[in-house]
Write a protein that binds this DNA or RNA. Sequence first.
RNA 1: GUGGUUGUAGCUCAGUUGGUUAGAGCGUCGGAUUGUGGUUCCGAAGGUCGCGGGUUCGAGCCCCGUUUUCCACCCCA
Length: 449
Amino acid sequence: MKPSIPKGTRDFTPQEMANRNYIFNTIKDVFRLYGFQQIETPAMENLSTLMGKYGEEGDKLLFKILNSGDFLSGVSDVELEERNSNRLTSKISEKGLRYDLTVPFARFVVQNRDKITFPFKRYQIQPVWRADRPQKGRYREFYQCDVDVVGSDSLINELELIQIVDEVYRRLNINVVVKINNRKILSGIAEIVGETERITDITVAIDKMDKIGLENVNKELFEKGISTEAIGKIQPILKLSGTNQEKLNQLKTILASSEIGLKGVEELEIIFNLCKSLKLQTTVELDLTLARGLNYYTGAIFEVKALDVEIGSITGGGRYDNLTGVFGMPGVSGVGISFGADRIHDVLNQLNLYPETSEEQTQILFVSFGEKELAYCLPWASELRKRGMNVEIYPEPVKMKKQMSYADSKKIPFVAIVGETEMKENKVMLKNMKTGEQKLVGIDEIPAP
RNA sequence: GUGGUUGUAGCUCAGUUGGUUAGAGCGUCGGAUUGUGGUUCCGAAGGUCGCGGGUUCGAGCCCCGUUUUCCACCCCA
């Protein structure tokens, strides 16, 4: 049979893993600088945990797991005849693969509330699955790197997340812009145009602003049944321009009659002012057309875009006031962001920004001419490993050409050649694979890593 | 979920209006070179042309179905 993997999934070669680990390690290092601690949750969750948290669309994209054993035993012929997939699903499947890391985290917080202290700062790097149709930069299995802090309303948390984004992308050498908005402002907008109920339709439409343009946004709003009058009132908001502060000032006037809208403006103002005291490399930009799909966000929302690559957002997140509420723990606010490791990988790839040498590389390979020489290499290798070097011994004394090619294909910088002469002198012939130079050396003359 | 696109050697791809035995480059293996890789030269292995059906004297090529890839929409990291 022809081997294959499910669509939208990928294998990772050693080279790709080295690159991915570079991303993960960079991100982890920065998370730890701010006191975030790692957790993991199971790949599968109970469907009751997952369903209804991501909107109607999200439910469709959940991978469901068939109950084990005779999963049809509890289903009547009538139910089978009905062919109602939704109803049948709940009978034959009670588990699903996680769709993101935030909802399982909310479940984790509620379930482990006795073991954690608030504010709780956690990070989590694990794959998530979506039954989406694969596309450019979109997979059915991909990794998210989430940082969240729950149990604190302070806007300092928002600020720290911006700092983390700034530092991660500084270390990765990717130029980005942080776009920020506030759900309360969007609610305010819906309020003043008199379409409070239609906030989702309005936000989904204006979110497409930079993609389809003003005219098409208006068209979509109209098609969604928003009144012409209301659309007219939204126009000045979509056309806002100037500095962040100028935009905020204009918003204060526009949203004067909306309490919630003004609250959102105030929150953003505080964040921008706090930003000024920091030396951020990244520009933080107020973008009123930023809406983000997930409807559990209630405060600040973020999105990070790479400036030099066309790829969509590579990081996103926001504040959610009551995510743990559905699990029976109301009043806990959280804010977090998620780094899209796979898209960051694509960006680094396109810009060729991966470091040339990886920590995972073998630094020295022992090659030998016979069984005796092979045995001679063992204590040498042990000693060098004790000194912290990554060392390999070619496990068979096959032809030199084969052993050298191996070193070459793995880009191992040094080869220690062992034959009779070397053994007699208690030395090895150390060859620098880049320059081709080689000399007879004792163990203490081998350069430290 | 909707529309389009793609599939030929391990990989990247040629393959004429349908016509004998389906090719190349890279990679792999062997040799030139019995203690030296990355360069060069020679040679070899490697294919149910995604799968199933149909049209035809004859199909890699045309038709139908199916699956896969990629792209757009919906949505999203």
